[in-house]
Design a binder for these strands. Sequence first.
DNA 1: CGATGTTGTAAACATGTGTTTACTTACGGC
DNA 2: GCCGTAAGTAAACACATGTTTACAACATCG
Lengths: 185, 185
Amino acid sequence: MARDAQATRERLVASARKAFSERGFERTTVREIAAEAGVNPALINRYFGGKEQLFAEAVSIDLAFPDLSGVARDRIGHALVEHFFRRWEGDAQDDLLRVLIRTAATNDEAASRIRGVLAEQVGMMVTRVAGPDRARERASLIATQILGLAYARYVIGLSDGDVAPQTAIAMIGGTVQRYLFDALP
Amino acid sequence: MARDAQATRERLVASARKAFSERGFERTTVREIAAEAGVNPALINRYFGGKEQLFAEAVSIDLAFPDLSGVARDRIGHALVEHFFRRWEGDAQDDLLRVLIRTAATNDEAASRIRGVLAEQVGMMVTRVAGPDRARERASLIATQILGLAYARYVIGLSDGDVAPQTAIAMIGGTVQRYLFDALP
DNA sequence: CGATGTTGTAAACATGTGTTTACTTACGGC
DNA sequence: GCCGTAAGTAAACACATGTTTACAACATCG
């Protein structure tokens, strides 16, 4: 292994995530990604086969739900919203949920990826916390609210002045709580 | 006025809306728009000055909130969600909210347009229905939920199987109701 | 009917971008 | 220490796409 191909690959993936999260798929050029990684654009084709495949590789998301076993049952919704805020407030500009939200608008692969995450990860979490009864519907409802929050903040650009974190955690936490436990019609 | 330039303009705007709502800004080409309108691509530049300006002209949105004066105070949230569902279930493939949601992901003009709509139209509606007290925060909270619903259905592609309209109207209506009237922290 | 200006078209132009090809550079085993 | 192979680069290629230019068709008015 000469001149560390592994490290170069990883740097390309990291640059790709950052770029895609800022500008989406089409507005990001392979030249930008390569420049950010300090490397030649041709390597993207050598290592990944092309822009599409690099994207697919760069986007494998793990929502990393926190351990909710110690959380009071009537505070789970709030804890979840808090979890996402902490995730987003961090300076991880390459947060994968952000990448996907921005990219899904014009890229079917990304949209499909989000559907998968909903079905698997959110569905699992709901089942564990609230039982399997209509877990899919509950997960979808929660998704509409959490995706909407992320979209409003990071795509539309709503600021803390519009939705203060404290207010959001309280109110949207209450919403998630309802979607988890309230009776569905 | 020979050979009806006005009608051609309008056909171009209509084609543009449809294309932008399906594929977003960057993935839509002026040649597609012109072909759909049955006209030469050069006319886009003649009439609008370019793709950017056509987009700006194609996207002027009016949420057209229904008259809520006859609705019981505890059913306003549900009425609003029902309003949006009716709007979307119709075959208006060129619905402007859909255009904006998809395009805002990579187009600042569209994102800014949505911010304006929130501040003006949703803010006004909230003020009229619930009074001016913290109307901006309430409007933003409502926006996160409604945008998220639209995003989940039309970008991610969640189906009626994931979020049945009936369930959504009941549960999300209740959420909007809370964001309108519940005490904020 | 003919002059005129508007509407529309066809083709060329300029450029940005993903990808390929041919070449150079550096590491590591013999 | 040399040499083969992997890592990296530079330049060219192919093509899509927004835009411009030169020209044709057509309605309207004198």
